[in-house]
Amino acid sequence: MNAIVFSILAVVIVVLALAAVGLPRLREAGAALVLLLVVIAILAAASGQYLVTIALLPAAGGGAVVGRTVMPLGRRSDRPRGEPVLPRRWWLGAAVGAGLGVLVVVVLALSGGDFVSGSGAPSPATALGAGEPNALVIAVVLAAIGIGAGLLLGRTSHDEHEQEARTEARRTRDERMRARREAREAAKRARREASTAGGGG
């Protein structure tokens, strides 16, 4: 495939993927996703894989129909009003995404002879074949990143639970203080009424 055509399609694909995961309105993100599938279908057709194109286009159409009919209409935005555009855990998503993306690039882009067992040609099926030191190292790094991501996500969840507990404790304390204040005011009022009644009698 011509490198210039590929570059143009690649830029469009990256922009649409970014829009599909980043646009706050779900309908707009869904439209970007459908367009992404269509552009990937065009890429497949330009690469000579017409069957993939034929399979992808109905998938994109089906996705458009699903998005049009069942996506929530009431709450159109994924982002509550007043919330910042970037999500709170953007750094976590960026780190995990970048790490896994780099690994995918490394695993798939390496097509040298030492990446393949035996004398056959490089192929995706042999990319993670056992017995190759590179594949073993990549598998170990993949596992480590997976565990790290799990720990990070778990830690975030734990933090959220702690925050909820703190919020609950603060709410209970506020309620107790308000109840005490009301009791004090009621007692003061009662004393005042009693002294007024005593002065009058």
Binding site: L18, G97, L100, L108
Partner: peptide, 8 residues
């Protein structure tokens, strides 16, 4: 790889 990273 870039598309996969954006998905993650």
């Amino acid at each position: 790889g870039v598309v996969f990273a954006l998905g993650v």
